[in-house]
Write a protein that binds this DNA or RNA. Sequence first.
DNA 1: AAGCGCGAACGTACGCTGTACGTCTCACGT
DNA 2: ACGTGAGACGTACAGCGTACGTTCGCGCTT
Lengths: 231, 231
Amino acid sequence: MTSDTPRAADTPRPALTRDRIVQAAVALIERESAEALSMRRVAAELDVAVMSLYNHVPNKTALLEGVADRVVAGLELGDDPAQSWQEGARALVRAFRKVAHDYPRSMTIVLTHKVDTAAGLRPMERALALADAAGFDAATAVRIMRALLAYAIGAQMREAGMEKMLGHLEETGVESWNHLDPDEFRHVIAYGPELAAHDPDSDFEFGLDLLIAALEALPRGPAAEPGSGRG
Amino acid sequence: MTSDTPRAADTPRPALTRDRIVQAAVALIERESAEALSMRRVAAELDVAVMSLYNHVPNKTALLEGVADRVVAGLELGDDPAQSWQEGARALVRAFRKVAHDYPRSMTIVLTHKVDTAAGLRPMERALALADAAGFDAATAVRIMRALLAYAIGAQMREAGMEKMLGHLEETGVESWNHLDPDEFRHVIAYGPELAAHDPDSDFEFGLDLLIAALEALPRGPAAEPGSGRG
DNA sequence: AAGCGCGAACGTACGCTGTACGTCTCACGT
DNA sequence: ACGTGAGACGTACAGCGTACGTTCGCGCTT
C-alpha cells in the first residue's frame, strides 16, 4: 500500500503540460516525419494515456499550431543596431532559413498552419521595422515584408520538394528522366548538370541578393541618397 | 433476369479510369477541402466501391500526385515569341498564380507533393528557355528559375496562410490582436491599416517587379547593353 | 480534522481512415 | 466453346481523432 499506490512520490512524473506535449510532438516529427505524428504516438512518447493530452490541447490542429509556434519561436533575431537595413534584412531571412535547417520536418507544419502568436508576429515586426528604418513608407514597408516572407517561405518549400524529387530519382534511376521529349525539354536536358549539382545555400543567397538589390534600387522617402545614415 | 442483370447496357457507367478518379478528387477538394478527400469519398463520388479505385491508382499518395499533376497541367504557357524575356517571365509567374486562383484548395497539394511528370517540368523548361534567351549562362539560368519558382510558391503559400489568419480573426474578434505588447510590436500595430487592407494581386506584382528589376540589372553575356534586341 | 470541489488522468467506444487479400463476373482471344 | 486476364467488389484489420463518463488525489473551506 505505502510503496505502490503513492507512485507519484518515487516515480515523480514531470507533470503533463502543454509545453511538454508540444516538445514531444516536435521531437517525434523530427525523429520520424510529420505524417507519423498522431495523438497516440505523442501519448506513448510521454508514457501517458491518449485522452490525457486533451486536458492541455483542445485538438490535434491546436497541437500542430503549437508545434509551428515553438519552431518559429526559435528564430534568432539579433537586432544589432550597427548593421545596415540591408544586412538586417539578410539576417532576418537567413534566420528563417536556419530554423528550417534545424527543424526540417517540422517546417512543413509551420508553412501550412497559422501562427498568430507573439512568436509568429515577431519576425513580421522586425521586417516592418527594417523597412521603416530604410525610409520606406508604411504601404511599401508592408509589401516589402510580404515579398521577403514569400521568398523565405518559397525557397524552403521548393528545396524540400526538390529533395523529394531527388529521393524519388534515386529509387527509380535516371532512366525515368531520359524519356522526355528531347525537343520540348531541350533546356532541361541541356542544363542537366547545373540542375543536378544544386547548392541550396548559394541558390538561396542568389535569390536573396536579387531581392535586396531591387530594394536598394527602389525610390524611398527621407533617405534616398546613399551615404546619409538615418538619425 | 434480362432486364436487371445487364445493367451495363441501360446504365452505361462511363468506365472507371485513372483520369476520372483524379478529376473527381480535384472536384471534391475544390468543393470541400483537401482534408475532406478520402478514398471512400472519391469512390462515393464516382458511385463505385472503394477498392475499385486501387485498380487504377496504387495508393492515396499517388492519387494526390495525380491531383498535383493535373493542376499544374492547367498552366497556360503561351509562348509569344514577340514578347521580351521580361514579359515572358512575368507571364510565367502569373500563369502559376492563375491556376492557384482557379484551384485554391488543390494548391496545397501541389506545393507539398513532387510533380516530376512532363506537365510539372514544362514550366521549368520555360523558365530556363527565357533565362537562356535573356543571355544568362546555364548556372545563372538555373538559379533564376529557382528564384522565380521560390517566389511564385511562397507568395501563394503566404497568401493562403494569411487568409487562414484573417478567417481566425473574424471568429475571435480583434481583441486577440490588441493585447500585444505595444512596445515590442510597435510597427505591427502602427501599420495595422496597411496590413489589414491587403490587395493580394498588387502585393504579388510588387514582389514580381522587384525580382524582374533585379534580373534586368544583372550582368549577362552576349546582350549586356540595352537596346540590343536578340536575333 | 473532516468534507467538499475541482482539475487532471484515464478507459471505453464510435465513426472514420488507408489498404491487404480473396472472390466473382464478364469481355475477349483462341 | 472455352480458358484467361482484367477489373469491380466485399470483407477485414489496424490505426486514427475524439466525445463521453468515471476515478483519483490535492487543496481549500468550515
